[in-house]
């Protein structure tokens, strides 16, 4: 713990909120899907910083599970692309 973890976690939280608002406003449906990317990276970053700012090391486990779920989501998307992509790319 160096003392800058908590301010940095707050900084990332502000980043996350700004990015969520920007992504949710669109303009296209694909832009709104960008929200899915934000939790896997910014959300996990905030959790590990909070864990080291004194909120308890259990938060590292939470971050790990969140990253794992995001990875499974990513792989599931990739697998769907494999099955659907070759026959009908316009799903």
């Amino acid at each position: 713990m160096t003392g800058i973890e908590f301010p940095l976690a707050l900084f990332l939280l502000v980043n996350l909120i700004v990015a969520l608002l920007a992504a949710a406003r669109g303009p296209t449906a694909a832009d709104r899907m960008l929200v899915a990317l934000l939790f896997g990276s910014t959300g996990v970053g905030i959790l590990v910083l909070l864990a080291h700012a004194g909120a308890g090391h259990e938060l590292v486990d939470v971050a790990l599970v969140l990253a794992l779920l995001a990875a499974i989501t990513g792989v599931a998307f990739a697998g769907r692309a494999w099955h659907a992509g070759e026959k009908k790319p316009h799903d």
């Binding site: 990739a78 692309a81 992509g85 070759e86 790319p89």
Partner: peptide, 25 residues
């Protein structure tokens, strides 16, 4: 192989300056 192509098009998104968009055959 299909697995190799899927790995390729997904990995491209994190390589400098590139982003896989579509893979057909």
């Amino acid at each position: 192989s299909g697995a190799a192509r899927i790995l390729m098009v997904n990995a491209l998104g994190l390589m400098p300056g590139s982003l896989g968009v579509r893979l057909e055959g």
